[in-house]
């Protein structure tokens, strides 16, 4: 299958196979007017299979949110056909309004319009803690 290379835009590479649609929706890529390609189940020497998203435009990306979805993702910025910058999504120190606290006793369950904030407590275990009630959440 042939998909054109990006001339100026962003390529999200090394997405865990099957995760690309979730990321597409979270980043709101459906709202862009430019061309967006989602390529699933691409052969990968490192991971076996992976997904790739190509965006034909340079946009502001929430790298923290990407890191939450999959900390192996690489973000390649292309300008005039050349790779100008490569960033690695990392597990963010703080997640704001990315995940919600599921503790029914947490103040976030009743107080309106307060951000749901989690802080990274263990990078290896991908463990986050709600800053309000201390509930721990392990990312899958």
């Amino acid at each position: 299958m042939n998909i054109d290379g990006v001339n100026t835009g962003i390529v999200l590479d090394h997405i865990k196979a099957g995760k690309s649609m979730e990321i597409y929706e979270y980043l709101g890529l459906d709202k862009l007017s430019s061309c967006v390609a989602i390529i699933q189940n691409v052969k990968s020497a490192k991971y076996g299979k992976k997904d790739i998203i190509k965006i034909d435009e340079i946009i502001d990306l929430d790298l923290d949110a990407l890191g939450y979805f999959d900390s192996n993702i690489t973000v390649n910025y292309i300008k005039d056909g050349k790779l100008v910058e490569k960033k690695h999504a990392e597990l963010p120190e703080r997640l704001t309004d990315v995940i919600k606290c599921k503790n029914p006793r947490c103040i976030t369950s009743t107080e309106q319009e307060i951000p749901h904030v989690f802080e990274l407590v263990d990078k290896e275990k991908k463990m986050y803690r709600c800053i309000y009630c201390d509930t721990l959440v392990k990312l899958k």
Binding site: R105, C130, Y132, C133
Partner: peptide, 27 residues
């Protein structure tokens, strides 16, 4: 004192005076 856990954290973010947590739920 508030039945919801973490309510004093919100109070401390907004208050112009010291907040003492006199108990927040089971927290």
């Amino acid at each position: 004192r508030h039945p919801k856990e973490g309510a004093p954290v919100i109070a401390a973010q907004r208050a112009s005076v010291p907040i003492i947590n006199a108990g927040d739920g089971g927290h």
